[in-house]
């Protein structure tokens, strides 16, 4: 018996294989995260160069912060609107493209193309198009609609940010759904047809359950992603009008980088991390209830 049994060697290979990722996580994720947690217990005046331990003061401020509450409400609206619109539009497009129709490849290309346009370019273009005399309202006026001043109304600003983000990224989810739809065995539909099930019934009872793993994956990625939308807000609305589009990540940026409250910014970072982790955990736990293969 040698010391290097197959199992031992296998273990070693396993550790070696995960080592780069693990060391990277340690250096670039966990230690920085620990440092952020440490900063949140301090008052850090960047300009003056002072760094002072203040214990839970920042967390007390967090509880009393009225703007933070407004920001959480905006975040909730943004995330909910984004996820619902993104997933339903992605599913709709996937179903349409899954029809036996010539030219679906062309449409697939077109729907996917915004994914490839760089984010900053995309946002700049929309910023110009959404001005009151911009081309969005130009197109609407052709239809006889008098368009609003999109980025300066409280609800229209939120709608604009959501729509711009959804159109940019819905192509990814669409492709994932399309692949899932093509994986649904055709005989299932045939059988259901013979049993007299209508199109909607077939969609609900066959399609949805069978593609539920994909719905889970896309909804996790989309929700987590929605809490990280920063550049779009920075370019389009700067959090306004009022504080209507100041989502949490933007508020964090304001506090830390614009108002120079690095310690408090770190505290909001910790809160954001907790929220993202909790949401992901809940979704993961709930998957047994509604995802077909996990039951």
């Amino acid at each position: 018996m040698t010391f290097w049994t197959y199992r031992r060697r296998d273990n070693l290979v396993g550790y070696l294989f995960v080592a780069p990722a693990l060391l990277g996580s340690l250096a670039f994720v966990l230690i920085p995260l620990g440092l952020v947690a440490w900063y949140s217990l301090n008052e850090w005046n960047v300009l003056g160069g002072t760094f002072e331990f203040i214990g839970g003061e920042n967390y007390k401020q967090l509880l009393a912060d009225e703007k933070l509450r407004e920001s959480l409400v905006a975040t909730a609206w943004f995330a909910a609107g984004l996820v619902v619109l993104n997933l339903s539009l992605a599913l709709l497009l996937a179903v349409l493209l899954n029809q036996k129709l010539r030219g679906t490849t062309l449409f697939r290309t077109l729907f996917f193309s915004p994914v490839l346009v760089s984010l900053v370019a995309w946002t700049l273009v929309w910023q110009l198009m959404l001005q009151p005399d911009g081309s969005v309202n130009g197109l609407l006026s052709v239809l006889g609609v008098d368009g609003p001043n999109w980025l300066r109304g409280e609800s229209t600003a939120m709608v604009s940010v959501i729509v711009v983000q959804v159109i940019k990224n819905v192509g990814l989810n669409m492709v994932l759904f399309l692949a899932a739809l093509q994986g649904v065995p055709a005989p299932l539909y045939e059988a259901a047809k013979i049993d007299g099930a209508g199109a909607w019934r077939r969609f609900r009872s066959i399609t949805i359950p069978l593609i539920s793993p994909t719905i889970l994956l896309t909804s996790i990625i989309t929700i987590v992603g929605s809490l990280q939308v920063f550049a779009q807000i920075a370019v389009l609305t700067q959090g306004g009008p009022g504080t209507s589009t100041t989502v949490l990540i933007y508020y964090l940026y304001q506090q830390a980088f614009q108002f120079h409250h690095f310690g408090y910014g770190a505290t909001i970072s910790v809160l954001l991390f907790v929220i993202v982790a909790a949401l992901t955990l809940v979704q993961w736990r709930m998957r047994r209830k509604w995802v077909l293969h996990e039951a």
Binding site: V29, L33, V36, F230, S269
Partner: peptide
Amino acid sequence: GLLIPSEVT
């Protein structure tokens, strides 16, 4: 790492 926005760290 999947859960951390880059602004945080």
